[in-house]
Design a protein around this nucleic acid. Sequence first.
DNA 1: TTATTTGCAAAAACTTTGCTGATAA
DNA 2: TTATCAGCAAAGTTTTTGCAAATAA
Lengths: 134, 134
Amino acid sequence: MHTDKIRITHQREVILETLKAVKTHPTADELYDMVRRQLPRISLATVYRNLEWMSEQGIVKKIEVGGRQKRFDGNIMPHYHIRCVECGKVDDVECDFLVAANQIPDTINGYRVLGHSMELQGICPDCNLKKVSS
Amino acid sequence: MHTDKIRITHQREVILETLKAVKTHPTADELYDMVRRQLPRISLATVYRNLEWMSEQGIVKKIEVGGRQKRFDGNIMPHYHIRCVECGKVDDVECDFLVAANQIPDTINGYRVLGHSMELQGICPDCNLKKVSS
DNA sequence: TTATTTGCAAAAACTTTGCTGATAA
DNA sequence: TTATCAGCAAAGTTTTTGCAAATAA
């Protein structure tokens, strides 16, 4: 993907606005469904291409965690996530108690360290209810 | 998958031995290639089914991190990983400096917390070399 | 003996890509 | 005007599933 001249297309704007507007961490096809309400003719490929491109640009963040599908986050401030192992939903976590990120060396096992991510796994309130009532 | 009567099949033994024997964190198809040297007629579906089943049983661990494919770890002791963003390789990390796991509450945002995982992202020595020399 | 597991092939799920027409600048 | 981008469809990649034959117990 060239970076010579970047265009602000309508699709690109709507995808970004939509992602920024939600506090969830949608997959490409979830975002596609949301965006389609404004742009009924948009294609899933465009959503994929733009999410990939925006995460390369650092405009959004590709969530590097478990689960089947990739998820995206409009919040690029450092923070961690908790994922429901039943339904796959991902929420933000307040994490004062967790990692002292500034203690992470910039070289480990010969790797040049670029970043880190932390995922808690759990069962969300909704899925907890379903399990209790079944 | 029923759990009424569990059979110790030859395939299951070889898959587990092979995974335990390596210090890498192979994907299903990497493990398939390794196992096939001993069991040339085994199918990839069997590898997938058994890895899934063994991770449900807690015999092995499915690595909940980024990257395209799922990876599996024969080491079920708690530890963290570093993944090369260039080639996808995953190594273990010594992590005294990282998370105080016992500080993680067992309820967060209404989620019942089951576990956590941490991934560092970086560039491995091999890929670093390739980048320097190109 | 018989219920579980395998191998195979097909399908499903998710993501990327090639191409042509549309469009931002 | 024109190089970038979108839409569409097709292909690629990874994982799961149905079913008949094989097999562990």
